[in-house]
Design a protein around this nucleic acid. Structure first.
Lengths: 208, 208
DNA sequence: AGCGGCATCAGCCAAAAGGCTGAGAGACCA
DNA sequence: TGGTCTCTCAGCCTTTTGGCTGATGCCGCT
């Protein structure tokens, strides 16, 4: 019947045309437009009101995917938003779901997974790749491992390579307090040294 | 005339088909095969002897792109190898060129750039995206800041969060030697602590 | 009022990391 | 052959980190 209208958002032309070619093999899926940036996506959604938006998170310049999702939600548009990206970083997943994404697919998903996700999304089903799902579950199962705001702040500075003294100065707290926070952070991250903390933080939060 | 035969190597189906669609618009470019892994690529090159191999560096499982390039070179095959990847990390660029890549393109390159690169590659020209080129130049201008192989190896392990003792055990060298290497690495990276070294290494090398 | 979570700080001690100097072996190159 | 680079190792000393214990004030919830 009515085919499902799809908007593709990805800053890489190659990915867009690949996805378009792929979706073109399905009679019920209809790619009505492509956007190379978040801004473009917002415009096209307003104009075309596609049923599904398939969106990459990393966008070269300007608004990133997360922000685009958030803005789409705010304009209470009723598109189902599917994240389609290369990386499965904890922070990205949580932020995307939080911003209002219906599903989260990795770029190495099989065609069938992609089709199923899009069809599911319009029906309100939320679909995600297996590795993504497992990460989400882990977040939910271990709320103990969620950093407090202050700890997160400290961890952020930690990944810049600051020493305890510098951390203290930057946050206007004593070195003793810095050490206390660090101990908590290490425990929550499951590491024992600041080096490991930095490594896991940068890798798992997708910090750059 | 004789069209240019191309082999695409990328673990993402979407990227492959996008690239294929793109190259399909050019009468003189002929995608004769696609590979999803380094191993597959080696096989297909042996069978089909394409004129150009367009290869992603990050391959999900098994042999990565760099290794594939190296092996292709060792089998003194005469393909021109073009790297086509998302990130422009210093280490990747150097390693790819070192392994024998003819060119280095980023995935946000325009179609024309991609076409030109492929055509240039078969003629022995080496082509690279502007940001890539500038990084390479910087490397050439500051040879003092280039890590030795051993140092790079150590830095790689460092970003896993290992201690000096663990580094030594892993590399079969004494802790004293580890500290020597680290001192050199810090000097070259322009940092003073391992924390900062890890931070800059992960961020600038695109390590994950 | 009481309890728990959060942020703050202190002191003590052991372990790890970092700065410095010096040095030998092998590879490579002019 | 001599110079340079790389990798290897040692000792010594200072600074930094990390582990542990304990403590205070604040806020929010019951």
């Amino acid at each position: 019947m009515n085919s499902i209208t799809v908007l593709l958002v990805d800053d890489h032309l190659v990915v867009r045309s690949g996805l378009k070619a792929l979706l073109g093999t399905q009679p019920d899926l209809d790619v009505v437009a492509e956007a190379a940036s978040g801004e473009e996506a917002l415009e096209l959604v307003a104009q075309l009101a596609p049923a599904v938006v398939v969106m990459d998170l990393a966008m070269g310049a300007g608004m990133d995917g997360i922000e685009a999702i958030r803005q789409l939600r705010q304009r209470n548009s009723r598109q189902a938003i599917l994240v389609f990206t290369t990386y499965d970083s904890d922070a990205d997943i949580v932020r995307a779901v939080d911003a209002g994404a219906m599903g989260y697919l990795l770029k190495d998903a099989t065609p069938d997974e992609i089709f199923a996700a899009i069809r599911g999304a319009v029906q309100g089903k939320s679909v995600m790749s297996a590795p993504v799902a497992s990460r989400l579950f882990q977040q939910l199962r271990n709320p103990d491992e969620v950093l407090t705001p202050r700890e997160a702040e400290l961890l952020g500075l930690l990944t810049e390579g600051l020493s305890n003294r510098e951390l203290g100065q930057r946050l206007f707290i004593s070195e003793a307090t810095v050490k206390t926070h660090l101990a908590h952070i290490y425990a929550k991250l499951g590491v024992e040294t600041r080096a490991a903390a930095i490594a896991t933080a940068i890798r798992r939060e997708g910090m750059r």
